[in-house]
Structure formats: C-alpha cells, structure tokens
C-alpha cells in the first residue's frame, strides 16, 4: 500500500536554494535592473519634495479640474491641504513618487507585453498563466524574494510594486486590442495598412479607453502595494502606519491611513476620469472644434449628449 505520509518533497528547501543561487550568481543583472528604477525614483521624489507644497496643490487641482471637473478639483484641494495640516506631507510625496515610478515602469512593460499578447495567441498562452499566478499570489509573498534579490529600501519596494501592479495593465491592453471591431480591422487592411499602421492608426486608438481602464486598476494595485512594501523598508505613508502599529500608536497609524485613503481616492478618480474621457469622446457625438468655439462665442454651449453622461457619472 502506498502511504503518502512516508514521502516528502522538500519543495521549500529547493526554492530557497534556487533563489539563493540566483541571488548569488545574477547579482549584477539585478543591479542593472535596479539602476534605472533608482534613478527615476530619485528624480521624481526630489522633484516632488523640492516643489513648494502650495505650487503642487495648484498644479494638481488644475489637473483634476481639467480631467474630471469641479467636484474632483475641490476634493483634491481640500485633501491636499489636509495632508499638509496633519503633518504627513513629505511622506505623501514619497509614496506618490514610489507610485509614479512604478506606474511609469508598469506602462513601459505592460503595454508592449499586452500588445504582443493581443497579436500572438502563443504569447498569450504563455503570459496568461503567469499573470494568473502573479495575481493570485498574496502580495506580501513577493517581499521575500525581492529582499533577497534587490535588498531592502524604497527601490526594492518599487520593484515589488511593479510586480504586483503590472498584470491588470497587460490584461486590459490585450483585451482592448482584441475587442476592436472586426470591421475596423478589415477596413484598415482593405485600405492597405501595414501591421504597424494597423496598430497605431486603428487598434491602439480604439483600445485606448480599455487600456486606461487597466491603468486605473494598476494605479490602485500600486497604491495598495506601496503601503505593504513599508515592511521591507520603503519609506512613505506605509511606514507611518507601520511605525504607528509597532508603537501601538493608534493616532499615528490612523494619520498614515487617512493620508493613504485620500491619495488613493484622488489617483483613482483622476485615472478613471482619463479613461472615461476617452470613452466619451469615442462613443458620443462630440461636435467639431469649430462648433464648440462657435458655441462659446455665442455665449451658449451646444447641447451635447455628453452632458447626460456627465450627470450619470456624477461630475
């Protein structure tokens, strides 16, 4: 009789050995990966911290107004003022820099990978299970190999954030391109588009709203992970929470938490507004530039179906 209790596969030890072996033999490779991330992170962080908080507030509020309208602009301004008043401004900027860095790298990796997956079924068959594993693995499980391979600190934190945040962008890019109306693809081919022209003229513009939807998901994942990576020494709001927990300082932890929530809402709404904006322009009757300008000069806005949509979106 086969008794499974007598058998044991030392999978844990194998993995440990494997990761150690990689860490030992491929250290230069990881340093090369780390280098541009570090540069980018430092650049963004120094920029944000050097910027006078009030200037930042004005710029961000204006951005929110332009992308999403008055409501979000007011919310953004109030939230940022609150972040200053509760004393977590520098930490917020560090977290923002961490997220921004991760997003840039996610875009650089995710969109090309998504495009590749959309165009080749073989690529998608390989990438898809990898994404499945990446998305079902609890996010803090990534922390250990990241520490072993990249060390501790904010830069390894950014690497962990990228690993967690990139899958939705790949999925949505793939989906967006695959969902483009067949007739539009046929039209492109029928008028003699090359593969590249088909991608840039037809597929990407049509897929853009979906890709931006994916970017929104990526931003949220990055936000969540940016807090968790405090455990491996990444600075920012996560660290505030972690310190609060360590000292059983509920107030301090709550302040960090509030900062995270406010930042997350702002980023979520901004990226969502970007995606909706694209979608709306595509779906509805946007009058020509001339018509809009004409309407402005006549002192009245042309009646747009967009306004109905705006209402449902609660702008």
């Amino acid at each position: 009789m086969l008794n499974l209790e007598n058998y044991y596969i030392p999978l844990d030890r194998w993995i440990q050995t494997f990761v150690e072996w990689i860490a030992f033999n491929f250290r230069p490779a990881f340093l090369v990966i780390k280098w541009p991330i570090e540069g980018l992170l430092r650049l963004i962080q120094d920029g944000l911290l050097a910027m006078p908080p009030l200037l930042f507030l004005v710029v961000f509020t204006a951005l929110a107004w332009w992308l999403a309208g008055r409501g979000l602009a007011i919310f953004t301004a109030l939230s940022l003022v609150l972040l200053m008043l509760i004393g977590v401004w520098p930490e917020s900027m560090t977290t923002l820099a961490l997220i921004a860095t991760a997003i840039v790298i996610c875009v650089l990796i995710g969109i090309p990978t998504g495009i590749l997956c959309a165009r080749s079924d073989t690529a998608w068959r390989i990438v898809r299970p990898v994404l499945d594993v990446m998305q079902t693995t609890p996010s803090f499980v990534y922390l250990i190999p990241v520490v072993m391979l990249f060390g501790v600190g904010t830069v390894p934190g950014a690497v962990a954030v990228v690993v967690v945040a990139v899958p939705p962008l790949i999925r949505f890019t793939n989906l967006g391109i695959r969902m483009v109306d067949r007739e539009l693809i046929e039209a492109g081919v029928a008028f003699g588009a090359t593969e590249r022209q088909l991608l840039w003229e037809v597929q990407l513009p049509q897929a853009l709203p979906t890709i931006l939807g994916g970017l929104n998901q990526t931003v949220l994942m990055a936000m969540v992970m940016a807090v968790i990576v405090a455990m491996i020494g990444a600075e920012g709001l996560g660290l505030v929470v972690l310190q609060g927990l360590g000292r059983l300082d509920v107030g301090r932890a709550a302040v960090g938490g509030i900062g995270i929530v406010l930042l997350a809402i702002i980023l979520d709404r901004l990226t969502q507004a970007m995606a909706n904006r694209e979608r709306r322009e595509e779906m509805s009757a946007r009058p020509g530039l001339r018509a809009v300008l004409g309407g402005m000069f006549r002192g009245s806005r042309p009646a747009l179906p967009e306004e109905a949509i705006e209402k449902t979106h609660g702008r």
Partner: peptide, 28 residues
Amino acid sequence: IRRHRISMVFQNFGLLPNKTVIENVGFG
C-alpha cells in the same frame, strides 16, 4: 493593390470613431 486599385465600403461603415469625417475620408 489595396492602396491604389481596390477599395471597399462596409456594411456598418467601418469608420474610425475617434477621427473626424475628413480624417476618415483621408484614411486610405
């Protein structure tokens, strides 16, 4: 051949929704 000698009109028009009418006409 597709660029110069054969063109096509589609049942559901096949127009790019993000491009203006004139850009669509100039697509080919």
